[in-house]
Structures are given as structure tokens and as C-alpha cells.
Amino acid sequence: MVEKKVEAPLEEKTVENLKAGDGVLLSGVVYTARDAAHKRLFDLIEKKQKLPFDLSGSVIYYVGPSPAPPGRVIGAAGPTTSFRMDSYTPRLLMHGVKGMIGKGQRSDEVKEAMREYTAVYFGATGGAAALLSGSIVESEVIAFDDLGPEAIRRLVVKEMPLVVINDCWGNDLYIEGRRRWARE
């Protein structure tokens, strides 16, 4: 697999150059958010209130890490299943989010919004949480501390191993991969 080095936050041009199936080593700042944090972000947008981080060009990692043991930046930190965020995602992309990291297939509405707003969906290997934890070099809770593992964290990652699942051109690696390897 080709491995492209990519920096976050993402520029539009970077997103345009990524294709479903590309291996990516992502470095830079990403924000964690999962179910409960998405609901709160969505409500803040609805009420036109200030958001805890700048969405423009941002990458959101769907993860609820385990607690950091002493001497570690973060605990195990692999992706959670992305479809639970689907109902909130198009609105976030409209407001500038350019990348998402998770696992599992997205809805047609999300894929359409990715084309419309030029965004990319990366897959991280589900269950490879100890391995992925090693690519996180900084972690700080910046909002919704009361949500525990679901709080929003600002992470700095270094060469996090990812795969492009959905690009901004409408390609879907899950569909293509399954088609290629299905037997009958």
C-alpha cells in the first residue's frame, strides 16, 4: 500500500488528492468526539453559540480512549463505529470539518455531504487501540469533561496509520474491497 504523509488540519487541496484505498500517515492536530459530544456540538451550532474548537479544516477522531496510566499520554485509543455519528455529520462538514477518523460504513447522506463539502473519511483499524495509542503524542481535554471518555480532547498525532475509506469523489473502499474479494 502507498503511504501518503498528510498534515492536519486539512487543506481542501490535500483532501482532493486523497483516493479511497490510499494508506495515510496522519500528523498534526485532531479532535476527539463521539456520540454525546456530537450531540452537544450539534446543539451549539443550532443555537449559534461558540464551539470549543475551530471546525475549519479540522479532523475529528471518533474515539473514547481508556484512561492514561501513569507515564503515558493516553490509554488505548482505537476508533469507535462511525455510523452513530451520521445524523450529525453533514452539518459539521457544512461548518468546515474536513476529515473524520473511525471505522465502519457511512450513510449515503454523509457520503453525499463529503462530495459537496470536500471531506475525507479515514479508517483506523478497529481494535488496534494499543498500537494506535503509540501515535498520539499529546492529549488534553478541552471541553465536556463531565462526559468522561466522551469528552472532547485535542490530540497531537504523529504518523497515525490510516486508510482512506471514502474520498471526496464518491469512492468507497468498503464497497470496492468487498466486491473485489467476494466469492460465488
Binding site: 480512549p65 482505537g78 488496534a128
Partner: peptide, 25 residues
Amino acid sequence: GRAIFDQLLKNADIARRQSIPICQD
């Protein structure tokens, strides 16, 4: 697919040696 298996095996090894969860969930 084989590259994913390599990640999973490496992951199990890191978890065991560093005493951190195999999966965050």
C-alpha cells in the same frame, strides 16, 4: 488484509508488554 493482521498481532503484543487495553472499549 495481511497488513491488517500484522497490525492486530503487533497490537496484542504491545498491549501485553505495556499492560494497556487491547481495545479502548
